[in-house]
């Protein structure tokens, strides 16, 4: 059983999102920290180091956290709440569903809870965060909003087996 939720479809589950680009050695990079490809829940904000020089701030506290950063040096923030849309995939077979559509290794060994990665899922470039919900395997997927109708269909197709 896999639960697919389009979080941004409802005001109740909507996820504010901010992207922070910060070069090595800047204050923003030092504040956000984390290893590349990992994430951490800080209060009501999920901080993800999705790329070597880019962090995502996801959750209700994201705008405030982005605003509070010291952007001196080569650093910037962008509100991506409306360009990227968030889909949550929860359930024991969530990894199997993703494995059918993507090429990454979604096993616990390679992508434990907290891992972040970029991968093409059903041909759509997605940023994926393993973000287990109360002990149940769960993935937060961020993708370009214009693909969402197709993407949900593809996920539904793939998950219907489980």
């Amino acid at each position: 059983m896999v639960e697919i939720t389009h979080l941004d479809a409802s005001p109740d589950t909507r996820v504010p999102k901010a992207s922070v680009r910060a070069a090595d050695g800047t204050a923003a990079a030092a504040t956000l920290g984390l290893n590349f490809a990992s994430s951490e829940q800080r209060g009501d904000t999920l901080v993800v180091r999705i790329r070597p020089d880019e962090w995502y701030l996801l959750g209700d506290g994201a705008p405030a956290m982005a605003d509070g950063l010291d952007l001196s040096g080569f650093a910037s923030t962008v509100d991506i709440s409306h360009s990227r849309t968030a889909v949550r995939l929860t359930g024991d077979r969530a990894a199997d569903t993703l494995a059918k559509l993507g090429s990454a290794d979604f096993s616990d060994h390679m992508t434990p809870n907290g891992a972040a990665l970029g991968n093409g899922i059903a041909g759509v470039t997605c940023d994926i965060v393993r973000d287990d919900q109360r002990g149940v395997r769960s993935y937060l997927l961020l993708l370009d909003g214009s693909f969402i109708t197709y993407f949900l269909g593809a996920l539904h197709d793939a998950a219907s087996e489980f």
């Binding site: 590349f36 070597p52 470039t125």
Partner: peptide, 8 residues
């Protein structure tokens, strides 16, 4: 170019 991964 690692377009869907690290974008390097």
């Amino acid at each position: 170019y690692c377009s869907s991964g690290c974008r390097r």
